[in-house]
Amino acid sequence: MTPSAPPARRFPIAALVLIAAALAADGAVSLWMARTSHHWLPVQASAAAPYVDDLFALETGIGSFIFLGCFAVMLWTLLFNRAPKYDMEDGDPIEGNLKLEITWTIIPLVIVMLIAIHAIRVSNTLATIGPKERVLGGEQALQVAEGATATGAAPAAADYGPIEVIARQWSWEFVYPDGTRSGELHLPVDRRVRFKLISMDVLHGFYVPAFRLKQDLIPGSVIDYSLVPTREGRYRLRDSMFSGGYFSTNQTDVVVESAGTFERWLADAARAPLQESPNAALQLWQARLAKGDKGWATVPPAPPPLVNVIHDPTAPHEG
């Protein structure tokens, strides 16, 4: 030890100013990070999205503050507490500091609990914007699923729907209340839409990044699901729960339209003849068979659903 600085005695104003300046700088950078965090996310296209993004921004801000604070301490020690070469002395034999230890137990506890309380509030708000319910019961629910693929159910009053979302290995099919079927999902903007999420084989995930929403489809259950699209446009709908062989091809688009456009689309669609939607999994599977079926085991793709409106894989999407 250099004998010149007995540190515990004097806690000079210079040190306080330095710490205050560092905290201020840390706060400023963290605020900037929180604001910037919105740019790391896709466009906001559902009523849930702003809530999710704000929560994420809040956590980015707090997280940045803590991360930078810790990093600053590490950097300080690396710059000013390095042992010179061949110096075999020991450092200050500080074994601990009870007050400090209590402080850094309580402060994180308070921070995470405040985040948790806030997140529960947001989570409950989201649950009222788009409630969901799992209809349980193996065989019964399967029968519901079988029935649902045949005919649509009656729509509720103010909401639109229910639209049946049917996932297979590896395709998406959407059945509207009037019985119209499509390979891409069309939704009216600014209106709550209800869904029945049905899987015909394995677990799938209904995931629209622009909506910030994701819900697994569970074979043997029907999940009542709802959401409110708030921005017109074409967005990706991806299978988010691994579903075997050609999982990554299992994506389609959600098209959010004004009420009028949506009504016209639905009316046109109802008159269109049923046809096979393009299916990337099937194309890959057939290519594989043509090349002598090399590769590892997979179940073959389910036959592509017959729909009134197919999914156009070349149409550009926004998020």
Partner: peptide, 22 residues
């Protein structure tokens, strides 16, 4: 985060005013 935080801060506290060999 609380017990893990305790550990992280303890390591930072160990570095503080040490004689660090890289």
């Amino acid at each position: 985060a609380v017990p893990t935080g305790i550990k992280v801060f303890a390591w930072l506290g160990t570095l503080w005013r040490g004689r660090i060999r890289l």
